[in-house]
């Protein structure tokens, strides 16, 4: 079954990312050069990938073309910029928002060929440190602010 990852980012200023960046600086994390945020979706579906990508990127439940930019990747496809990416997702059964979104996509947006869907927040960090320190630094930031261990999990997408 084909699988695709969709990354939705804002083209206008992202207040959440700015607030996160300011908060981290106030907390003493001064090595962050840049912090961006993207909404992450992963779909398993039936049908042709190009057709699916074209159709899903036009669903306004997920993308508003006036303010969003969409990018697709195959799972494990590398990120060329070499930045650290922390993916925060809810742990299983912790929330019903994802299942309710899937139901809306199937029933209201006509995307009945979606078989499985995952959602999350992707934090993209540029860290000014030695390469061997970057990963522990990113984990420290994730633990301090970006996810709550009781109902969320974080993973670093290290695809180079």
């Amino acid at each position: 079954m084909p699988e695709v990852e969709m990354f939705v980012s804002l083209v206008i200023p992202d207040n959440t990312a700015i607030t996160a960046s300011n908060t981290l600086k106030r907390m003493g994390s001064t090595k962050i050069l840049n912090l961006k945020r993207e909404i992450y979706y992963k779909f398993n579906f039936n049908g042709d990938t190009k057709v699916f990508e074209n159709k899903i990127s036009k669903v306004d439940l997920l993308v508003n073309h006036n303010k969003h930019k969409v990018e697709f990747k195959k799972p494990n496809e590398p990120f060329p910029d070499g930045r650290i990416r922390i993916l925060v997702t809810d742990t299983e059964n912790s929330s019903n928002s994802s299942s309710s979104l899937l139901s809306s996509l199937k029933n209201s947006a006509g995307m009945k060929n979606i078989k499985k869907m995952e959602t999350g927040t992707l934090w993209i960090l540029a860290i000014d440190d030695k390469p061997e320190n970057v990963m522990p630094y990113a984990w420290d930031i994730a633990r301090k602010l970006l996810y709550n261990k009781h109902y969320q999990k974080a993973e670093i997408l290290a695809r180079r």
């Binding site: 309710s100 979104l101 709550n148 109902y151």
Partner: peptide
């Protein structure tokens, strides 16, 4: 402890 998103059968 945490205050996680609601789980409610009617609305998310």
């Amino acid at each position: 402890i945490a205050l996680a998103p609601n789980v409610n059968p009617l609305v998310s």
